[in-house]
Amino acid sequence: MGVSQKWFKFVRGKFLKSSSNRDIILPRKSACSDSSNHSEESILRNETFSFQDLSSVEVLTKEDIAAIKIQAHFRGHLARRAYRALRSLVKLQALARGVYVRNQVRIALDCMRALVRLQVRVRARQLLGACNHDSRVM
């Protein structure tokens, strides 16, 4: 955990040192901003605008943007790791099921062989019994 904290502090320090203007104004994407009288470009160009125009503008610092990017990358990393774990779990399940199915097939074949041997004995007895019975009659 210490390594990740050092990395985060390093990245945060770089953003803090390099940001002379720390506030960035981004337009908020919503239905109310489309229906307003002023376009987003005019809001960003003009320094004076009404209180109604503030509802369509969101102020984000560079730290906020950096935090959002870091969170997005970390969530992507977690998703990739979860997908890899899920993929390996599916492979492991397939392997285990394959072993189980092969054992079932082996047992079923052994039972079929036993039934075939029993059937051969019964047929042989029937044929021998029929031959012995015919020879006694004559």
Rank of each mutant, 00 (worst) to 15 (best):
E63T: 13
S42Y: 08
L26N: 13
A96I: 11
F74R: 12
S88I: 13
S36R: 13
L118V: 11
I24V: 15
V59L: 05
M138A: 06
N37I: 07
K62Y: 08
K14P: 01
S36L: 07
L92C: 05
Y100D: 12
Q119P: 10
L118H: 11
V3S: 14
L118S: 14
H133G: 06
W7H: 08
Q104Y: 06
R12S: 14
R22C: 03
F49T: 06
D134R: 11
L92T: 14
K62Q: 08
I107P: 04
S50R: 02
V57W: 01
T61K: 01
G98E: 01
R102D: 09
S35E: 13
R81N: 06
I65S: 01
V120R: 04
L115T: 11
V99W: 09
R45V: 14
V59R: 14
L128I: 10
K62H: 13
R125S: 13
K9P: 01
L86H: 07
V99P: 04
A108S: 13
V105T: 15
F49D: 03
L44R: 02
S36E: 03
V120M: 04
G76L: 08
R125H: 03
S39N: 10
Q52V: 15
P27H: 08
S4A: 05
A67M: 12
L54V: 08
R75K: 10
S4H: 06
S88C: 09
L44D: 00
L44E: 00
Q93T: 11
H77N: 07
F15D: 08
Q93W: 02
R123A: 01
R117W: 06
A82N: 15
V122M: 00
I43N: 04
A124K: 01
R84F: 02
V59Y: 11
Y83G: 03
F15V: 15
C111N: 11
R45D: 13
A114L: 03
A114F: 05
T48I: 09
R97F: 02
